[in-house]
Design a protein around this nucleic acid. Sequence first.
DNA 1: TTTCGTTATATTCGAATGAACATATCGTGG
DNA 2: CCACGATATGTTCATTCGAATATAACGAAA
Lengths: 129, 129
Amino acid sequence: MHVPAVRFRVDFGRDGAVGPGKIALLEHIGSGGSLSQAARELGMSYRRAWQLLESLNSCFREPVAQSAKGGRGGGGARLTPFGRVLIRVYREFDAEVQKRAARSFREVAGLARQSSRTRSPVVRLRARH
Amino acid sequence: MHVPAVRFRVDFGRDGAVGPGKIALLEHIGSGGSLSQAARELGMSYRRAWQLLESLNSCFREPVAQSAKGGRGGGGARLTPFGRVLIRVYREFDAEVQKRAARSFREVAGLARQSSRTRSPVVRLRARH
DNA sequence: TTTCGTTATATTCGAATGAACATATCGTGG
DNA sequence: CCACGATATGTTCATTCGAATATAACGAAA
């Protein structure tokens, strides 16, 4: 992997944080219209998806998604305008971070070894005395 | 917390990644000259610190630190020039990321609700006589 | 040669995390 | 009314992660 990938999490206060998992969940809610469908698509349990969404909604004074139970199709979840803003801001920041990381870590990444099973060479060293 | 904090990790290939923990460890090795002392200062077990350092050294084709056992003081660990480069690059990138995050997430952070817990009191530290 | 603090490494244990499973509830449509 | 599919939430279990513990090796200095 020549280009390093940066994974990051934004901490808001003590309680709430937003990272790639929650943003991906929001995006799948936005495209699928359902929390359970988003969970299935992301390969996570419905309970976990619900907890992530709950955490997001309680992190901000405005909800990121509204959900309905019962009714046509059993219910569903929809992004709020604020939820869409959160996704957009996160993704724009993300793109900027990746671009800058590619530059900042280019030389360092050139020294990263790709096959993990290559044994580290025994280095002969001498202590500072 | 008006200014959000970003925690990030840089993934190099499948095996290795560098995040705030490993960088802090390197910095403490650099200032203290010992892996065990760094572990104590960071409040982590020596074993964990050794594993983190091992992971770093096996992540790159060049070691980030060299260690010596025995001798005066029992031995020690010293940063290599590459280790110092890694710290510098990471910290410069870090500063840039924090600065940009403050701008990107300013409006969103304004909607974050501060912890329901009692706001942490401003503790005035006083020199002991 | 004994002492000392460190590196190096295996083993055991407890806490945290998420998965799996189990219900309960809801509201529209058949 | 009843069935369906989704939300909402509790409980149990497995796995993972790191702390704690233990031990060996090492080499300069006293």
